[in-house]
């Protein structure tokens, strides 16, 4: 394992933590991306406008990565399109049913020692491990 393979994920994680702390300190909001996106899919209200600004920030940050660190993105996504669609649908339904995703439950929730976030994180991590095992080793490496 190279130093870079530890430091880059760690530094990125710290940035994610700082971004989440900034949103809490300034806006009083939890940086849960699935919740922010879901809330943005409603009829816009003035007090909810921060969600659109946050999403615009995510997209601008993505643009910055594209310009200055394009290695952040893969050359191509290898998962077949029908599976990508199924995966997106499951992520949409699951994050709403479970009230959060990797950011809201994983980073923000676990850091606050929320028992709900611990249960959610164990559930999606466990399902993720099992799913990849099934995809890679039972169904002949579709993913």
């Amino acid at each position: 394992m190279s130093v870079e393979s530890v430091l880059m994920p760690l530094a990125g994680g710290v940035l994610i933590g700082l971004a989440s702390a900034l949103l809490l300190a300034m806006n009083g909001k939890i940086a849960g991306i699935s919740g922010i996106v879901d809330g943005a899919l409603k009829v816009p209200e003035e007090e909810e406008s921060w969600r659109y600004f946050f999403i615009a920030g995510l997209l601008s940050g993505g643009l910055g990565l594209l310009l200055f660190y394009s290695d952040a993105f893969p050359a191509a996504i290898r998962t077949p399109l029908p599976l990508v669609l199924a995966a997106g649908f499951l992520v949409g339904v699951g994050t709403r049913m479970g009230s959060g995703c990797t950011s809201g439950h994983g980073i923000c929730g676990l850091s606050r020692f929320s028992p709900r976030s611990l249960v959610a994180t164990v559930s999606f991590m466990g399902a993720g491990f099992l799913t990849v095992a099934a995809m890679r080793h039972l169904f002949g490496g579709l993913a």
Binding site: I33, A120, A127
Partner: peptide, 29 residues
């Protein structure tokens, strides 16, 4: 519901390797 939602999300996450934040960030590609 919390566990069920987590499991569904985890299956989708495992299939595509995307969770909501990275997917939104990658839209610009």
């Amino acid at each position: 519901r919390l566990v069920g939602g987590g499991v569904l999300f985890g299956v989708g996450w495992g299939i595509a390797g995307f969770c909501p934040g990275p997917a939104m960030t990658s839209l610009v590609t």
